[in-house]
C-alpha cells in the first residue's frame, strides 16, 4: 500500500486552485437547478440533461435531414424555403434525363453522371487496394516484431493529418518539378510526368493519396482483429504441422472475416463521400476527370454561378440512400457478429 507522495498532493492542490472558479460556477448553477429538481422530480432532470444535446442535434442534424426532401422538390436559386417554388419531382427528372442511358455525356446533367461514374470507379479501386494493403500491413504488424508500437505508429501517422494538409503535401510532391519526378529522374526517366494536369494520372493520384492517408486506420482495426484470434489456435495448428499458407487460409482469414467485412463497408461509406483531399489536390480537374459526388453537390449547391440547391439536394438524397444501404449492411453484419459471439 502506498501513501500519497508529497508531489501528488501538491499537484492536486494546484489542480484544486485551478478548478476553484469552475467549482464556484457549478455551485452557482446548482442553485436554480435544485429548484428545478424540486418541481420536476429526479426523473424530470433526465430531460434537462438530455435537452441541450437533443436540441442541437434536432436543429442541425434531424431538421436538415427532413428539409432536404422538401428542398429536392423545389427550384430556384434562393436558399430560404419560403422563397422557393415547388417543382415536384422535376429535379430528380432532370438528373435522370438522358438521350442514351449508356452514355453519361448525353444526359442533361452530364456532370452528375460523370461524378457518379468517377466516384464508382474511385470507390471500387480505392477500397480494394486500400483494404489489401491494410491487410498486408496488419499481418506484418501482427508478427513478432520488435518495437511493434513504433511500426504501428509509422503506418498510422497520416491518418490524423488534415485532408487539406494531405492534399498540399502531395500537390507539392507531385508537381512537375516535384520530388516524385526527381526520383524517377534519378532512375533515368528524363521526361517529367505531369501527375496533376494529365487525365491519365490524376485519377490514379487521387486514389493513391487517399490510400496513403487512410490505410493506417483500417490496418489498425484489422490488427486488433488479428490480435483477438486466440493464440492457442495457432499453437494447435503448429502441433498438427500445418503449413503457414494453410494456416492463413483456414484459420486467420475465416476468423478475421467479420472484421474484414466491417472494415470494407466502413471504407466504402467513407470512399463514397471523398472530397477534401481531392479538392485541394486537383480541384476535380483536369476537366472533370476527378470530379466526385460530394464536390458535385457542393458546387451545384453553392459554388457555381448557376447554383441550384434543389438539384444538389436531390443528388445528395441519392447519395444518402446509397449510404443508408451500406450502413444497414454494416449494422446487419454487426448484429450477426454479436449473435455469433453469444452462441
Amino acid at each position: 500500500m502506498t501513501s500519497p507522495s508529497p508531489t501528488s498532493s501538491s499537484s492536486s492542490r494546484l489542480g484544486a486552485l485551478l478548478m476553484a472558479p469552475v467549482n464556484a460556477l457549478m455551485r452557482l448553477i446548482d442553485v436554480p437547478l435544485r429548484g428545478l429538481q424540486k418541481s420536476t422530480g429526479i426523473g424530470g432532470m433526465a430531460a434537462f440533461f438530455l435537452a441541450p444535446n437533443m436540441l442541437i442535434f434536432g436543429i442541425f442534424v434531424l431538421l436538415p435531414l427532413v428539409i432536404n426532401f422538401v428542398y429536392s422538390m423545389t427550384g430556384g436559386t434562393a436558399f430560404f424555403l419560403a422563397e422557393r417554388n415547388f417543382v415536384g419531382g422535376e429535379q430528380y427528372a432532370r438528373l435522370f434525363t438522358c438521350q442514351n442511358y449508356l452514355d453519361p455525356m448525353s444526359c442533361q446533367e452530364d456532370a452528375f453522371w460523370t461524378a457518379v461514374g468517377n466516384t464508382f470507379w474511385f470507390v471500387i479501386l480505392q477500397v480494394a487496394l486500400m483494404i489489401l494493403t491494410a491487410l498486408i500491413t496488419a499481418l506484418i504488424l501482427n508478427r513478432d516484431l520488435a518495437a511493434r508500437s513504433f511500426w504501428r505508429a509509422v503506418f498510422f501517422f497520416p491518418v490524423l493529418l488534415s485532408p487539406v494538409v494531405v492534399g498540399l503535401i502531395w500537390k507539392w510532391i507531385l508537381q512537375r518539378q516535384g520530388l516524385l519526378n526527381f526520383i524517377l529522374f534519378q532512375f533515368g526517366d528524363t521526361e517529367p510526368y505531369t501527375w496533376l494536369t494529365d487525365r491519365t494520372w490524376t485519377f490514379a493520384a487521387t486514389i493513391g493519396v487517399s490510400i496513403w492517408a487512410h490505410m493506417g486506420f483500417y490496418a489498425l482495426i484489422l490488427l486488433a482483429g488479428l490480435q483477438a484470434i486466440p493464440k492457442d489456435l495457432y499453437e494447435a495448428a503448429e502441433m498438427d504441422g500445418t503449413k503457414p499458407a494453410r494456416v492463413f487460409w483456414r484459420i486467420t482469414l475465416p476468423l478475421l472475416a467479420p472484421n474484414l467485412l466491417v472494415v470494407v463497408v466502413l471504407a466504402l461509406i467513407r470512399a463514397v463521400q471523398i472530397f477534401d483531399e481531392v479538392y485541394v489536390l486537383t480541384g476535380g480537374g483536369p476537366g472533370t476527370s476527378t470530379l466526385y459526388l460530394t464536390q458535385y453537390i457542393y458546387e451545384t449547391g453553392f459554388a457555381s454561378a448557376l447554383r441550384n440547391p434543389g438539384l444538389a439536394a436531390a443528388a445528395s438524397i441519392l447519395m444518402g440512400s446509397v449510404l443508408v444501404v451500406l450502413t444497414l449492411i454494416q449494422l446487419g453484419i454487426g448484429r450477426k457478429n454479436e449473435n455469433k459471439g453469444k452462441r
Binding site: 442535434f57 436543429i59 442541425f60 442534424v61 434531424l62 431538421l63 436538415p64 435531414l65 428539409i67 432536404n68 422538401v70 428542398y71 436558399f79 430560404f80 424555403l81 461509406i269 463521400q273 472530397f275 459526388l293 460530394t294 453537390i297 457542393y298 449547391g301 453553392f302 440547391p309 444538389a312 439536394a313 445528395s316 438524397i317 447519395m319 444518402g320 449510404l323 443508408v324 450502413t327
Partner: peptide, 20 residues
C-alpha cells in the same frame, strides 16, 4: 434516433444545413 443518425454525413445534409 442517435444510432440512426450516427451515419448522417455532412455531405448529405449540407444544402439544408446551410439554409438553417
Amino acid at each position: 434516433i442517435i444510432l440512426a443518425t450516427l451515419m448522417v454525413p455532412l455531405s448529405v445534409i449540407m444544402v439544408p444545413l446551410y439554409s438553417i
